[in-house]
Design a protein around this nucleic acid. Sequence first.
RNA 1: GUGGCCUUAGCUCAACGGCAGAGCAGCGGAUUGUGGAUCCGCAGGUUAUGGGUUCGAAACCCAUAGGCCACCCCA
Length: 428
Amino acid sequence: MPTYRAPRGTRDLLPAERPTWARLEALARDLAARYGYREITTPLFELADVFERGIGEVTDVVQKELFRLAPRTEESERWALRPEPTAGIMRAYVQHGMQTWPQPVKLTQTGPMFRYDRPQAGRYRQFVQFDVEAIGDPGPAIDAEIIELGFRFYREAGLDGVEVLLNSIGDGACRPSFIAALTDYYRGHVDALPPLERERLDRNVLRLPDSKDPAMTALNAAAPRITEFLCDACAAHLAGVRAHLDALGVAYRLEPSLVRGLDYYTRTAFEFYKTGREGQQQALGGGGRYDGLIELLGGRPTPGIGFGIGLDRLVLALAETGGASDAEPAPVAVVVGADPDDTVGRLRVATDLRGAGIAARAELGRRKLGKQLEAAVRDGAHFAVILGDELADGNVTLRDLRAATQTLVPVGELADTIARAEASHTHG
RNA sequence: GUGGCCUUAGCUCAACGGCAGAGCAGCGGAUUGUGGAUCCGCAGGUUAUGGGUUCGAAACCCAUAGGCCACCCCA
């Protein structure tokens, strides 16, 4: 075992897996831009208050999973690594007076998040989220637009069979009455509750209808449903979201037991799942409306909606569906030579090629030509440039490693020749 | 945070309580300027770590760490 390894719940993304990540990161950026979202980068850590107030003091994310930074001095502020992107972006919205920008303000960010969780496959202490936020639009049309954007992201990423789960969790006007009704209902059957569920009754009653305990299925089937308690405004909002989704042809499933773990959500809540893997575990992404969040962080009352999509889980899902992983870029040419000791010559030719914009590797090891060519082939290079006696006449040998053909080329024409051959190859 | 399964070379895996090995990957060589095949060789390990049992532990026991699974929760 190595002396040091990556901290628990973190991992190194090695060169072989980076191209897939790079593709998804580029897709996230391009897609967000296509929908009118502008890029923002916020700090990886914030005052802990931003998360505690924004996400909610009594949520698991804050109580158990926040990565708090140890203060360095007495005066040092209480910082925490960001467990999610929304609170920081809303902090920035307030700080920079974005309420004076044309509304809605549509922002996107992709980057690492941190949660002090017990790791598992697809669950890491450092993970990457693709996030979009639309601030200042009360919906419901923008709700549908943002769900469709997320749905499209998976499709264009190459992941099929993604399902949208949709719910409304009400607002300050109607959610309290639903919580009261739910609490009453389960209190009335408290003797039938397993110990764990009994504990959740007080802590997080909204989670009970979603329980995976078989003993709960009958009880949950008869439990009150949020849809029966939505106020007129929330019901109309949900109907509006659905109408717009229908118009866009986005298939979704109403899931009345869907709740979200962060306190700031209101009304629209949604999650993306790989079909067949629904449940509270392994959501590919999720989001919702947070109409009270900006006010909580000191801004004027402003509606907002967004989602976070977990790229780690998307990469896992893509691998599970057996798709080939993206290929690493290979050098176009590798400069090799008959004289193993002539590293100066090989490096100089490679440098000239690089200056001409050609991806070239110089063989700087002092090994025999056969080994150099072998390594060039393993690199996936298209051409080998062979330096040898022909240099006396100002020529090098340009060998096409795929076609196994070679020609003499004057050194001065090498870059042009390679560029031309490579272009005709990739475009033809 | 709770419970369970697992951990031997870079990777995938062998080894009855009795000498730690193979395949792949890496590096070198096969009469001296040409390839992914083949053959030969080299290197790679305090068997995750620390204790214990035993004449003797990779193997049995305990603890710790890490990975995974189910919860909790979330991406």
